[in-house]
Computed example of a mutant assay.
Amino acid sequence: MYSRELSNILIKRKLISMFDGLTQGQIERLMFIDFCLVFKGEFARSELMERFGVAQAAATRDLARYRQLLAEQGKPEPVLDHSVKRYRRVSDFVPLCQHNPDYVITQFNRSVMSIDGEWGNQGGALAGYFQGVHSPFEQRSRALLNLSSDILPSITRAIHQQTLVDIRYLSLTRESLKRFAPHTIVSNGHRWHVRGAEIGSDGSAQFKDLVLTRMRSVTGVDQRAPESALMADDLSWQQRVTLRLVPHPVKFEHHHEVIELDYGMTNGCLELQTRLALLDYTLNLWDVDCSQNAVLSGFRYQLYLDNRAELAGFDAMQRTPGFTE
């Protein structure tokens, strides 16, 4: 229940006194305003009305109360952009509450798209906060996340506003500064990645994934991402491929019916659709033997990629289980 989750947050962060005298609904709406400014960088009064079904007068009072609470703590208030009737955070904005990134990503994780593109129906306390805009998350995951509190919001704001960020990034070989245009946060089942385009010194855009936890710092750049760096131009992201998974032909030659039942196969086959950019993530997550002659040992490989030849030309297949064997 949202009320229990919200109460735990407030108690943990010692915010009970700040919201003293307010109803549960008022507190939820104030936290929603704060959340939008942190993770989207902007907020409109109409969002309160649509999200919570309140009248314009009630939404106006909530916004006034939120600004009052910021002022009482000496924190800068958001500025109204009259041209679009949206409040935007200022450069030195400090949120009313500290939003734990692990909690936020867990809640989003309960409502984002599954591998076959269907929306989940297990929305938690924060599910729906990005309704009406592109959700920054793709695929459910139990991946671990250990971030400083400002990294995830900086990424989600850039995704929502389609702007650039400068990322100080630690790879296996060195630390470097990357100018990046993120468009989605995606999980490979074990860790979170940011999908987007790295902008070269010549302005070129190269789409790739960066590991979220390897980001030492993320700084917003007041500059729109070039058209060539937007999701629409990420061809590997836009293209979907079909995976035909069958019981492993060697290990389960005489017990294929068991695997068919385990995975809900039809006519001995399970077909999955995934984005080309997620091809290797999906096959690794499902422990699919992608070798030419089904040679991988170990009980974990219960599935075999039946249409291996059809997918062999994609570079991502080089990173799948057994493909090079």
Rank of each mutant, 00 (worst) to 15 (best):
H256R: 14
A57T: 14
D102K: 13
C97S: 10
Y301Q: 09
T320C: 15
I185W: 07
A205Q: 01
V165I: 15
K40F: 05
S141I: 01
F52A: 03
L285W: 10
E138F: 08
L170Y: 03
L276R: 14
R140T: 14
F39R: 00
S154I: 00
S46R: 12
F39Y: 15
I185K: 08
S171E: 06
V133Y: 12
D289W: 00
K14D: 09
E47L: 12
Y129Q: 09
H256P: 01
Y281M: 12
P153Y: 06
A158M: 03
R65A: 13
H256S: 15
V54R: 04
E271G: 03
S3D: 15
E271L: 08
S141V: 00
L152K: 01
P101L: 05
L30Y: 03
V194I: 10
N8V: 11
A294D: 04
S171Y: 08
L261S: 15
N109L: 12
K85S: 12
R140P: 06
N8A: 11
R61L: 08
V241R: 12
L283K: 06
F19S: 03
Q139P: 01
D20I: 10
A197M: 02
V211P: 00
A277F: 02
M317P: 04
F39E: 04
Q139W: 10
I259N: 02
F207Y: 09
V38H: 08
K208P: 03
S154D: 10
R51F: 08
V54K: 07
M113K: 05
T163Y: 01
H193I: 01
S236M: 09
T274V: 09
S187Y: 10
T173V: 05
V246H: 02
V133D: 13
L235D: 06
G268K: 06
G264L: 03
S171C: 10
T156F: 01
S201T: 14
V133S: 13
H190M: 11
I185F: 09
A143V: 05
M317L: 13
I16M: 13
A316I: 03
E310S: 05
V241K: 08
R140G: 15
S217N: 13
M113V: 02
Q273C: 06
V165S: 11
E325F: 12
V221Y: 08
D287H: 13
H193S: 01
F43T: 01
Q68C: 05
S236D: 12
R4D: 15
D34I: 07
H134T: 10
M215I: 15
V258C: 11
G123V: 11
L276C: 06
A158V: 00
P101G: 07
Q24L: 14
T23P: 00
E325A: 14
